[in-house]
Design a protein around this nucleic acid. Structure first.
Lengths: 147, 147
DNA sequence: TTTTATGCAAACCATTTGCATCGGG
DNA sequence: CCCGATGCAAATGGTTTGCATAAAA
């Protein structure tokens, strides 16, 4: 969960990014950002939309998808591609800290963290002359039946 | 590219899997497998479908999607999650050997290989009691402008 | 006042499904 | 023969788009 200070910093960052890139600062956009800052894990456009319905004012799917695109562009959220039919998103600051183990069947997700990964990624980026942006490690497997 | 021997082994494996799981061995299924064995990288249902059109007989989208599902189930192909709108696939044997660097903008894909990754994955699987099935490491970044 | 964003509904498009027919076992 | 598989076309459902209206700047 984000604390108040982090939320303010993120809101300010979004506001500045909107300004810098020539987008308007509409209340809908900040309402969606607020909702996303309350998410503790993965979410989809549909889960956001249904949560939106319980809020003071309604926001359309068009605006929701539009805002999700902006939040992707400015790097506040990232898109996971775990399910084939529906896009899943996560705040980038959350996602940066862990990989995903996808536990079949049912695709239950375990998040993990491993310090050895970062040096490998840096090495690969140097090798291929890539300016690192982000990464994702997914591991698929089945629960072990033994103890 | 797969050599003849590998192709025969894969075809046999698919055939046995179909038998074992109670599915019929239709010519359409083997025709699609044959096409996939000629792919040297990523493919989508649509790229397969259009290649199919140049073949002796036509295969419907329904059958194509049905067969892709079977090939996923038996582990011959895996699904990548790079593009948001269309599923991308690859032969599992190919995918096992490399990770993917997604070079923005345009999502050009560089494949890579790093020996340090495997021990990390094994460690994580042991820690979480996971029977390893497969993994995927994606790195997003931009081309470096300097030399 | 200008121009971008919103909301609604319709359009899109990859994928799935229903159903009549075909054909593997 | 029987029942699963195919082909076609229609349905589905997540996402995008067109357009009239609203509201940021």
């Amino acid at each position: 969960m984000m604390n108040q200070k982090e939320k303010e910093a993120m809101t300010l960052g979004f506001s500045e990014w909107l300004q810098k890139t020539g987008h308007r600062k509409t209340p809908e956009r900040f309402a969606i950002l607020t909702l996303i800052m309350e998410e503790s894990g993965h979410f989809t456009p549909e889960t956001l939309y249904s949560k939106m319905k319980n809020r003071p004012y309604h926001i359309s799917r068009a605006t929701l998808y539009n805002t999700i695109r902006l939040l992707l562009e400015c790097g506040i959220i990232i898109r996971h591609q775990i399910h084939s039919q529906q896009n899943t998103y996560e705040r980038a600051t959350l996602a940066a800290n862990h990989g995903h183990i996808i536990n079949l069947p049912g695709e239950e997700i375990i998040e993990f963290n491993h310090p050895g990964l970062q040096p490998i990624i840096e090495e690969l980026c140097n090798l291929h002359s890539i300016q690192y942006s982000r990464h994702a490690l997914y591991i698929w497997g089945y629960p072990k039946k033994d103890v």
